[in-house]
Write a protein that binds this DNA or RNA. Sequence first.
RNA 1: UCCUCGGUAGCUCAAUCGGCAGAGCGGGUGGCUGUUAACCACUAGGUUGUAGGUUCGAGUCCUACCCGAGGAGCCA
Length: 463
Amino acid sequence: MKRTKIAEIFSSTKVGGKVTVMGWVRTRRDSKGGFSFIEVNDGSCLSNLQVITDDKLANYREEVLRLQTGCSVRVLGTLTASRGKGQKVEVQAQEIEVLGWADPDIYPLQKKRHSFEFLRTIAHLRPRTNTLSAVARVRNAMSQAIHTFFQERGFLYVHTPIITGSDCEGAGEMFQVTSLDLDNIPIKDGHVDFEKDFFSSPSHLTVSGQLEAEIYALSMGDVYTFGPTFRAENSNTSRHLAEFWMVEPEMAFCDLEGNIELAVEFLKHIFAYVLENCKEDMGLFNRFIDTSVIETLERIISQDFETLTYTDGIEILSKSREKFEFPVEWGSDLQSEHERYLCEKVFNKPIVMTDYPKEIKSFYMKVNEDEKTVRAMDVLVPKIGEIIGGSQREDDYNTLLQRIKEMGLNPDDYWWYLELRKFGSAPHAGFGLGFERLIQFVTGMSNIRDVIPFPRTPGNASF
RNA sequence: UCCUCGGUAGCUCAAUCGGCAGAGCGGGUGGCUGUUAACCACUAGGUUGUAGGUUCGAGUCCUACCCGAGGAGCCA
C-alpha cells in the first residue's frame, strides 16, 4: 500500500515518474472523446490532484464513469506536465482501483458550498471539505508551533491531571467525575457518601492546570501545559466550548512584565509560523472566510501591542463619545462592547490590559502596593475578545492566606498551594491561552465549533 | 440562562394581503467539450421542525415544545 502523498507531488517539480496516489474523489468531468478528469484529494494539502483517465483502462466504462464525490480510489499513473490551465502537473492514469464507493443519492457532501451549521451535523465527514481540512492542518501546525516555541526556550512540558481532587480551582462550573451508580447513590447522614466513590472524595474534570503547573515552575523554573480543559458553564456563544484546549506557561523568577513579554512573543511566533508553513490554507481563509486575516497577522507580527492599565482603559472609555449599553465605572469588569471598542476602534490592534481591581480577579493574583489592584493581564484581540488571561502570582504566604479567606474559600483546600509560599517562595507568573480562540483568530473562522474536530457544547456531545 | 432571528426538496434559499409548493445546486437520462464552481436539454424529488388551535381555506395567524444561529452574561 505504498503511496505518494499529494502534498509531496506538488512540492517537487519532477515529472515523468510513476506514482501511486490514494485519496477521495472530489469531482469528475467527462469528455465524450473517451476520457475523464478526476480530482483526487488525500487531505495532505488543500489542492486536488487532477487525474486523467481514458477508455484504455479496463474498468473505464463500468467503474471510472460511475465515480462520484466521496469515492476512495487508488491511482497508479505517470506524473506529467498538465496541458490544461489551472494546474502544473497531473497524473496520467494507468490503473484506477475503486477502494470504496459513495452512493451519490445518500452521500451528504456535494461539490458545492455547505453551511457550517449543516457540516456540524456530519462531523464524521466534514474534514473532507476544503475549509474544515484547512482548519485541521492549521490547528496541527499551531500545536507544533506551540511546542517548538517553548522547547526552544527551555520550557518543560508538564502533564497536569485531567481529574482533579477537589472543587478548589475557582474558575467556573465543573463536571463531576464519579463511578457511583447514579440510580443507587450511597447516602450517609443525608448526603452522598463519597467515601464509597472511586477516589473516596468528590472529584471533577480540571478547569485549569495552573495550580499544578505552579508546583513544577517552583521546582523546574519554566514550564508549560497544553491539554484539554473542561467547563460546565451553560454558555451558548461562538467562542465557548465545554471541552477546549488550553496552553498554560508558568515561570519562576518572573514578574508581570516578563509574563507580558512572553505572551507577546508567543503570539507573534505562532502567527509567523502559520504564515510561513500554511500558505495555501491561509490563502483559502483569506479568500473565502475573512479577506483581512493575513494582513492582520502580518501587522501584528511587525507592531508592538498596546499595553495599558485597567485604570487607563476606564479613563479612555469614559472620555469617549461612544454610547455604551453598560456604564463604564472603575471597579466593574469591562463588558464585551468596551473591550471591542478599545481593541477595534481606539487602537485597532491587540491590547494588553493590566492591573485590574482585585475584587474582579482571582485570589491567586499578586496584590499591588496600592492594595486595590492586582498584577493581572488580559490580552484582547479584535473580534474574539479575551484570548489570554494571566497574572503574576501572589507569592507572599500571609497575603495569599488572607485573599483566600476574603474570597470565602477554605484554606484547608489549598494547603499545598499555600506551602509553596512557605518553603522557598519565589516570584512567579504565567497565563492561560485558549487554543481554539487562537485558531479562530488566525483563520478568521467565526464559530469556535468549527475549529475543533468534535465540539462539546451544552446539549451536544455527539461523535 | 436571557434577548433577537430562523426551521420549506439531499444542500442553499424564495413563496406578496391567509388562496394551486418554487428556483439554483446536487442526483438520473441524453448531448457536447483538454475539462477544471464545466456547459446544454429533459427528468425525478415535499407529512413546510413537532403537537395543538383559529379559519371555508394555514408554509403564512395564535399557543406550547424541540432544534439551530447571532448577541449578552460567564470565561479561555
